[in-house]
Design a protein around this nucleic acid. Structure first.
Length: 329
DNA sequence: CACTTGACCTGTCCGC
DNA sequence: TGCGGACAGGTCAAGT
């Protein structure tokens, strides 16, 4: 779910919240989410400063003063949430919860409160200098996979319900050489993403659906299911249309629509469909502006036809059958 | 190489 | 109310 706009929103938030902070300790709950050698973590993360927060495609890059980078992929349910004062916020949240009726408390709210309580519990017992500071901790919260604790006791939580995401520490110079990074297509919001570049890359997938093609991160970087549906509706293209049946003109329009929806979503702080939140734990509002995504059984904003949900490229897909005619031969 | 499908996980929702 | 199964959808590995 975190796609380019969501990851970019987290990046911007982290940039203003953690740059310059010194890492005191790191705690994690399983090897899959944090596949790093404790000795490397100890040597290159502990006592280092955060120098930059970058993004490439859907990958977040937290660069450290040691020339190492914490590379993070949120995949489906990952969150990176910064908390400056966990004790105070936990008290505030508990106070708010007491003053709300059961109905008013949404799941996210309770989730954050339990995370904050955990943060102040004695389960964080591996401080800097402790030989086990980067080993598996005994974390009571179910979805907190990694906790980065800074010198001022502020914390960065990497939460990930489904454990698809990961955070790994590697030399900054080797980030671009990671197999996934090498194969990535162009950044859609950079100047390099011209009509010519987009069309030639998309046409390498001539015999697949246009939706599968734009979801392919080697064609272009950063589009996922939400913005694929949104941009295809904008370009009036049926997602199942084979690439070979699309004209250059149509692909040019699609490129423009991709840029449009990504920019609009960044402006709205991303889409909170299920559990995406930004670096401050807040939801994004793009979903309020979505034209087709999650709008099944509602009227198309262009022609009022009821939007349907079907399956294309193995994904849930939202279409207006009148605006998006299917022309495969 | 091009393309499709299933696996990786866990929480939620829906029908019985 | 409990319970099984479908579903969510980013990427990789294995299949055709």
């Amino acid at each position: 779910m975190p796609e380019l706009p969501e990851v970019e929103t987290v990046r911007k938030g982290l940039e203003s919240l953690i740059v310059g902070k010194t890492i005191k300790s790191v705690v994690h709950d399983n090897e899959r989410s944090f596949p790093n050698d404790p000795a490397i973590v100890s040597q290159f993360a502990i006592n280092s400063d955060v120098s930059l927060v970058k993004r490439r495609a859907k990958v977040l890059l937290i660069e450290l003063s040691t020339e190492y980078t914490l590379m993070t992929h949120l995949k489906m349910t990952g969150q990176l949430v910064f908390v400056a004062d966990a004790t105070k916020q936990a008290q505030n949240l508990k106070h708010e919860i007491r003053n709300k009726s059961k109905k008013e408390i949404d799941a996210d709210f309770e989730f954050r409160a339990s995370n904050l309580e955990f943060a102040e519990s004695d389960s964080i017992r591996f401080g800097a200098g402790h030989p086990n500071h980067s080993l598996v901790g005994n974390l009571p919260d179910k979805s907190t996979r990694v906790t980065i604790i800074f010198e001022d006791d502020s914390k960065l939580f990497f939460n990930d319900q489904r454990k698809f995401g990961w955070m790994k520490l590697l030399p900054t110079a080797l980030v671009a050489q990671e197999p996934f990074m090498v194969k990535l297509g162009p950044e859609p919001l950079e100047l390099e993403f011209t009509d010519q570049v987009f069309i030639s890359r998309v046409r390498r997938r001539a015999n697949t659906s246009i939706k599968a093609a734009i979801l392919d991160q080697t064609v272009l970087a950063g589009v996922g299911n939400i913005y694929a549906d949104e941009s295809l509706w904008g370009a009036k293209i049926h997602p199942a249309t084979l690439v070979r049946n699309l004209s250059d003109k149509q692909l040019s329009v699609l490129r423009r629509e991709i840029i449009y929806v990504l920019r609009l979503s960044i402006e709205k702080g991303g889409s909170t469909d299920r559990n995406y939140v930004n670096a401050e734990g807040k939801r994004g509002s793009y979903i309020d502006f979505a034209r087709v995504f999650r709008q099944e059984n509602k009227p198309c904003p262009r022609c009022q036809t009821i939007i349907i949900k079907t399956r294309v490229a193995g994904r849930g897909t939202h279409i207006c059958l009148i605006c998006q005619k299917h022309k495969n031969k």
